[in-house]
Amino acid sequence: MAAIKKYQDKDGNTRYQFQIYLGTDPLTGKKKTTRRRGFKTKKEAQIVLSRLELDVYNHGLPAKNDNSIFSDIYQLWFTQYQHTVKESTWATTKRMFRLHILPVFGEYRIAQITIKDCQKAINQWFNEGLAKYHTLMNYVAKVLDYAINIDLISENPAKRVIVPVNKNDRSRKNLENYFDKPELQHFFECLNDDDNTPQASVFFRLAAFSGMRKSEMLCLEWSDIDFVHHTISVNKTQSRGDMARLLVQTPKTARSNRTVFIDPKTVQILQRWQLEQKKYLIRFGFNINHSNNYVFANENNEMFQPSKPRKWLEHTLTKYDLKHVTVHAFRHTYATLAFEAGASVKSVQDQLGHSSYRTTLDIYTAVTAKQKNEATQKLASYLNF
């Protein structure tokens, strides 16, 4: 009788596990064991253990389908996975497998994949500079977990790799991806003088003064804006589905589904743009009475591709030799300047829809550290001895 043991998982939760002797493999003469873990109660572990013991007693050593290859098991797993997530999520996952995982593991026999194979793969992705190298290995682990569930293998080698650590301070670079107040003012001066589409000025004004995500703004409809109360209802997001088609979906988290506030001048800018847009729509025969017309739309009155704001931005930054930032920088700019203006962490978190308090606090900490440094310099200059 195998012993059921209690342990603590990485989150500190009590879980149960057992290891059972399966017998001797007649092909190799080696003793075989299997381990099961992650049971929430001892009773759950006991039920599975009893079934395994009965199976071994009746049938001997479980047979392994050594001919099953990774790509086949991936297809079985992916069919089930599609029913558990949104299309944009499974489409991204499918792309990650096609581009990175299947070229490495696709033809491997499931039963022959080793810790060494998995370690080599994650090291390769890391050395290639793939930002989500750890996510790729997590997906490999999910497929191998599925192989365990259908009794093809007994252990998951992907869960025993040593994950490389990126020593580049990417978080610091992200924190520096913003405009300070003079830089933001100069950017809008250049943008307004440029021959960019008027939509670019409105887009980046709203981004900088509301903190909304690009994906939220690109599917924003006029009916989402309350010009009386100066608010915007953020209730959807633009994303990619299968075959890279554009989708409009509900936000990923409850916090992302929120009401954001806009200042009076931004309200006026949006109202002026709405009038300009209506003139264009009338001129080209579009119905201006649809409340679901997009705030930012192409010549066919359809959503822009997600690359469009980046093209607007790169054009202006290059033409006027400005500091290089990303479109996401305007969201970070909002948070940074709001903190410098004295806003609370809670109010900024609510406005941005950060699901993690830590994300907001990281920006706040960087701002306050800068302010403390300026205070010391001002004091030293004042005392001057």
Rank of each mutant, 00 (worst) to 15 (best):
A63N: 14
L130C: 10
A63W: 01
A121K: 05
R240S: 10
F78S: 00
H332P: 00
R240M: 09
N300F: 11
K311E: 12
K10R: 12
N384F: 07
L102R: 05
D226H: 02
Q82T: 09
K323T: 02
T237L: 00
T316K: 05
S344N: 14
G12F: 02
D263N: 14
R240P: 01
R37P: 00
N196M: 11
K64M: 13
Q271I: 06
S171G: 12
R36D: 01
R240F: 13
F339R: 12
A366I: 02
K30R: 14
R37L: 07
A147H: 02
G285Y: 07
D180Y: 07
K265W: 12
T41W: 00
Q274G: 05
P306W: 02
K43H: 08
V140I: 11
P103K: 09
S71I: 10
N65G: 12
S223M: 08
S68M: 15
A207D: 04
W125P: 09
N257E: 11
I225L: 02
Y108S: 14
P264D: 09
R255V: 00
Y320E: 09
D151G: 00
I269V: 13
K265I: 07
R15V: 00
E183F: 13
P164R: 14
Q19T: 13
T33Y: 14
A244R: 14
S68G: 07
G353I: 03
E155M: 08
K236I: 01
A158E: 05
T197V: 09
F339V: 08
R51Y: 04
F227P: 13
K308L: 14
K132S: 15
I269S: 02
F339E: 11
Q119E: 04
Q277G: 01
T114D: 01
V140M: 10
R37T: 13
L313H: 06
K42N: 05
I269L: 03
V260K: 03
K142I: 01
L218V: 08
F304S: 05
S201V: 15
A375R: 09
E221V: 07
D321C: 11
E53N: 12
K30N: 06
H354N: 03
L49K: 12
N166I: 11
N257A: 06
E128C: 08
I122A: 08
F105V: 12
G342C: 12
A341W: 09
L206Y: 03
N168A: 03
E374K: 15
R283S: 14
I47V: 15
L191W: 04
R331F: 06
T14S: 12
F97K: 03
Q119K: 13
I47N: 04
H328L: 05
